[in-house]
Amino acid sequence: MKRHNVDIQRSSGAGFTLIELLVVIAIVGILTAIAVATYQDQIVKSRRAAAASCLQQGAQFMERYYTTNLSYVNATPPTCDAEVAAHYAAPSFVGTPAAKTYSMQIVPTGAQATRDTLCGTLTINQQGVRGEGGTATSADQCW
């Protein structure tokens, strides 16, 4: 019997080493972590913009109410659509509306409340002055 000695030669470009594979996995993990964080920030901003829009619509409703009744007394706060209602409490008055003044707010709930520490609660009054209850340096960042 003859034995055949077969030399298997490995070429240098035949595949990946374990180290190369681990480096690629680490890079993909880092990029994924950055992408997820950025995505979540954009979701928070999008929901905040929808809440701000709802609050501005509420202010317009209040102005129509005042035009009809010459007072804000007995006005009821408007409601928002389901998308906003899923992440914010319904708009409510801060205190009780007076004859010529009111202040309305919309408060984040659930995950929106924990993730949106920059703006938090959004407010608007009869003069159109907008505010926020978070750590933002100006209301312009939130509206």
Rank of each mutant, 00 (worst) to 15 (best):
M1N: 06
N5K: 03
N5V: 13
D7M: 09
R10C: 10
R10K: 13
S12A: 12
T17Q: 14
E20A: 08
E20Y: 12
V23D: 03
V24H: 01
V24G: 06
I25D: 02
A26M: 10
I27E: 00
I30N: 04
L31Y: 06
L31S: 04
I34C: 00
A37P: 08
A37K: 11
D41W: 03
V44I: 13
V44K: 02
K45G: 09
S46K: 07
S46L: 02
R47K: 05
R47C: 03
S53W: 02
L55Q: 01
G58P: 09
Q60F: 03
E63L: 10
L70Y: 02
S71T: 05
S71F: 03
Y72Q: 12
P78V: 05
T79Y: 00
E83Q: 13
A86Q: 07
A89N: 05
F93E: 05
V94C: 04
V94I: 15
V94H: 01
G95F: 02
T101F: 05
Q105S: 08
Q105I: 03
V107C: 04
Q112T: 00
T114A: 11
T114N: 10
T114I: 04
R115T: 00
D116W: 08
D116N: 05
C119N: 06
C119Y: 07
G120C: 10
G120P: 05
T123L: 08
Q127D: 14
G128T: 08
V129K: 01
R130N: 13
R130Y: 04
R130I: 15
G131W: 02
G133Q: 11
G133R: 15
G134I: 01
T135I: 06
A136S: 05
T137S: 15
T137C: 12
D140Y: 01
D140G: 14
